[in-house]
Simulated scan of single mutants.
Amino acid sequence: MSTESTTDHPYTVPEGVLIGHLTPGTAAWDEARAGLTITATEIAAVVGLSPWMSRFTLWHKKSGLAVAPFEMSSPIEWGTRLEDAVALKWQEEHPGFLAAPAGTWRHRERDWERATPDRLVYPQPAGEFEIPDQADSLLEVKTSPFGDDWGPDGAEDGVPVWYRCQAMWQMNVLGLRRVHFAVLISGHDYREYTVDYDEAEAKILRDAAVKFLDEVSHGVRPPIDSADDTYQTIRVQPDGFDDIDVEIPAVDAARYENAQVASKEAAAELTAAKSVVLDHIGTGRRAVCDERRIAYRIPKADGTTKSLNPYKQKEAA
């Protein structure tokens, strides 16, 4: 059941105002995130760093235009199911602190800045059972099938940049100065990280958000990029079908035709490369090169190969 209250919350943060404990998917939840607002999960898209949403798609969403419907994936479903368990693990690892559900917040002065952290972290001295008046940090809970995007446990730069943007925005909205990350990788590899507030980074994000919302207000559409969700957004824009010819620029026609040829050539080369790697693996599980994981094999029940999948490779620093 949703507790969609906008009354004063008994616990406070330095700069945030609680909108309510809103249930995802409800009208109140959608309203708190709609229109000319930027949430912590959207800020990475604003600066072009989100692996899930392009700036182009976010612009259409904020402009009230059609975007592809949300589809529940297995990683998202299990991330939601496991959130409480991973949060409890963090709390067990940090006696003296309590991680409580956070709710949805806005900045006290800049109403358009929104955030829904996973947990507020309260210091809880030994022997005391009441939650202190003010949280001192935040907790974000993440799950990942593979740890390629995450650094070693506790690494200072171990948090992927898109989650760092999310954490920085949450701190910017609530006025807190540290976000803890509790991460479960591959269902058994538990890691922790921290991100501390950086005013220079926060200002970059704020300035980018202001510019983005100004472009939304004035109808300045971002350029089309190579993200798949940009393509999905364009696919849902037409409202109707006219059986007519539409003249397009020669440069765009050539780009499309050349890309078709290159795609076929690349697909053929990829198939050959996969065959060679799979032949090397044989009955094994993973292909490695100089201790670097290249690909992994998923077998069928009879031991033959169901699929060969690449490991994500981090860009060189």
Rank of each mutant, 00 (worst) to 15 (best):
V17N: 02
L18K: 01
L18C: 12
I19D: 10
I19V: 11
G20F: 00
G20N: 08
G20I: 05
H21W: 13
H21L: 05
H21Y: 14
H21Q: 14
L22H: 01
L22D: 06
L22R: 14
L22Y: 05
L22A: 06
T23S: 11
P24A: 04
P24H: 02
G25E: 12
G25K: 01
G25F: 02
T26G: 07
T26F: 01
A27V: 12
A27N: 14
A27C: 09
A28V: 12
A28E: 15
A28M: 08
A28R: 09
W29S: 10
W29L: 06
W29V: 02
D30W: 11
D30T: 11
D30R: 14
E31Y: 07
E31K: 14
A32V: 08
R33P: 10
A34R: 05
A34H: 08
A34I: 02
A34W: 07
G35K: 11
G35I: 01
L36G: 08
T37D: 09
T37C: 04
T37K: 09
T37P: 04
I38R: 03
I38Y: 09
T39Q: 11
T39P: 07
T39S: 15
A40Q: 14
A40D: 15
A40T: 15
A40P: 11
T41P: 01
E42A: 07
E42Y: 09
E42P: 01
E42I: 01
E42K: 03
E42S: 03
I43A: 01
I43K: 03
I43F: 09
I43L: 13
I43D: 12
A44L: 11
A44N: 12
A44E: 10
A45M: 05
A45L: 03
V46A: 00
V46T: 08
V46C: 06
V46R: 00
V46G: 01
V47R: 01
